[in-house]
Write a protein that binds this DNA or RNA. Structure first.
Length: 439
RNA sequence: GGAGAGGUGGCCGAGUGGUCGAAGGCGCACGCCUGGAAAGUGUGUAAACCGUAAGGUUUCGAGGGUUCGAAUCCCUCCCUCUUCGCCA
């Protein structure tokens, strides 16, 4: 959420900044709401102050054994007006808040302008794109042909069977492929906790709407989430559980409604979780196979930092994600997302895109964003500034380190051999019980 | 799921209808003391919101109710702890 105070005092400036990302701010609506709110709030508070002082008078008078009937009737006179004012004020505040919750973050000044992903800016490339002296296959074909005879049928990557259980966009991994998937998770977590200073967390996969509002998935992106069936009462009480679309939600919300000591910062948190997304995007070659699933695994990196540190922390976190690709020797590039492509809550985002040989292109494998105080304000996550003695909003940063399924895709395709077998990346061999090739 | 006990400021903890946003302690900040530190000691220190400010409003798990007035009384719900049952 944007700072409501800043917003109403700089409506036109904010509108211009939001226009950079293609969002049209309804300034007229906000102005109208604000005008009515201001008058009403002043009046309401005036009446409340009146009631408060009168009530104190009554208390004193009673104690002194004086007659209070005169004061009582004075209070009764404006009771109805006060009640009506309070109700209307609440309505106005709720309406304004609902509007505010639908407004995306302001892009950071360093975020390049652009209307969509075509205008993202490539910053650098790493690694050598492998050349093959045979026709490369994609991971779907490779996976289906691997493990001949393994448990009878279906290859090591089986979408047909998964579809029978769960429908489209689910997958089954078997044998050494399932193990490599698990190996990747261990490898990523070990690297981040042992080399990059993150603390490991195990977190809930089901969360309440408040947590999702905190990080920005709600209220605007309800259709992308899987919700658990709940009765009217639970929904009314705002307790309906949702499957997490990313570990960002439970991990970032670990600091919600708290005031952190300055000495505790920065917090570097990591967690491996499954992620569930119901997004019903178009099918096509570029989302074939394991690329876009309703259920996938991810190792997430989150940092909670002081505002002045967030830009450098984003660079640092990006480096931590890059390190995984480097250790796996997977070629990738770093892309700065333009204003038209950054997510709702983000002010600045770098994507890591890994080389996918079968598509002869780079595909997103990690998205690292600085949210500024946007999520912190929604969560009421603060730190105590020693200089001022006051609580101030933290800044939040997160990124995938990495998406496990897509990393598996990248390994399968980049490490494929002419006979359809897959070499195991050097760093994963210990995690694979010494296995060097998957056949 | 049953029974019992609880949910108060950054933390602990007092407070059962009125001058309570709330004693006391811890922590923190600044000062005194000290060669320096610790100890001791003095003062200050909840948050959110409105307001340029002065100042004001709200908040004692959440929501509703009673009342001129609620941390305090009533109702509903949530959560935590203990215990029994069940279970991985």
């Amino acid at each position: 959420m944007l700072d409501p105070k800043f917003l109403r005092n700089n409506l036109d400036v904010v509108a211009v900044q939001l226009a950079r990302r293609g969002f049209t701010l309804d300034t007229g609506k906000l102005t109208d709401l604000e005008a009515e709110r201001k008058v009403l709030q002043a009046r309401t508070q005036e009446l409340q102050a009146e009631r408060k002082s009168k009530s104190k008078e009554i208390g004193l008078a009673k104690k002194n054994g004086q007659d209070v009937s005169e004061i009582l009737s004075a209070v009764a006179k404006f009771g109805d007006e006060l009640k009506a004012a309070e109700i209307r004020l609440k309505e106005l505040q709720d309406e304004t808040h609902a509007l505010l919750m639908m407004i995306p973050n302001i892009p950071h000044e360093s975020t390049p302008d652009g209307k969509d992903e075509d205008e993202n800016v490539e910053l650098r490339r790493w690694g050598d794109i492998p050349s093959f002296d045979f026709a490369v296959k994609d991971h779907v074909d490779l996976g289906a042909e691997l493990g001949d005879g393994w448990n009878g049928k279906g290859g090591l990557m089986d979408f047909e069977n998964a579809a029978r259980l769960s429908g489209a966009r689910f997958s089954i991994l078997k044998g050494p492929l399932a193990r490599m998937h698990r190996a990747l998770i261990q490898f990523m977590l070990n690297t981040h906790t042992e080399e990059h200073g993150y603390s490991e967390n195990y977190v809930p996969y089901l969360v309440r709407p408040d947590a999702l509002r905190g990080t920005g998935q709600l209220p605007k992106f309800k259709e992308d989430l899987f919700a658990i069936e709940a009765d009217e009462e639970a929904i009314e009480a705002d307790k309906q559980l949702h499957l997490i679309p990313t570990a960002e939600v439970p991990v970032t919300n670990m600091v919600r409604e708290s005031i952190l000591d300055e000495a505790e910062l920065p917090l570097r948190l990591t967690a491996h979780t499954p992620c569930f997304r119901s997004e019903a995007g178009a099918y096509g070659k570029d989302v074939r196979g394991l690329i876009r699933q309703h259920q996938f695994e991810k190792v997430e990196l989150v940092q909670i930092v002081k505002p002045q540190d967030s830009l450098s922390a984003l660079d640092e976190l990006l480096g931590h994600a890059e390190k995984i690709l480097q250790l796996l020797n997977l070629p990738y590039r770093v892309v700065a997302l333009c204003t038209g492509d950054i997510g709702f809550s983000a002010s600045k985002t770098f994507d890591l895109e890994v080389w996918v040989p079968a598509q002869e292109t780079y595909r997103e494998i990690s998205s690292c964003s600085n949210f500024g105080d946007f999520q912190a304000r929604r969560m009421l996550a603060r730190w105590r500034n020693k200089a001022t003695g006051k609580p101030e909003l933290v800044h939040t940063i997160n990124g995938s380190g990495l998406a496990v399924g897509r990393t598996l895709v990248a390994i399968i395709e980049n490490y494929q051999q002419a006979d359809g077998s897959i070499r195991v990346p050097e760093v994963l061999i210990p995690y694979m019980g010494g296995m060097e090739v998957i056949r």
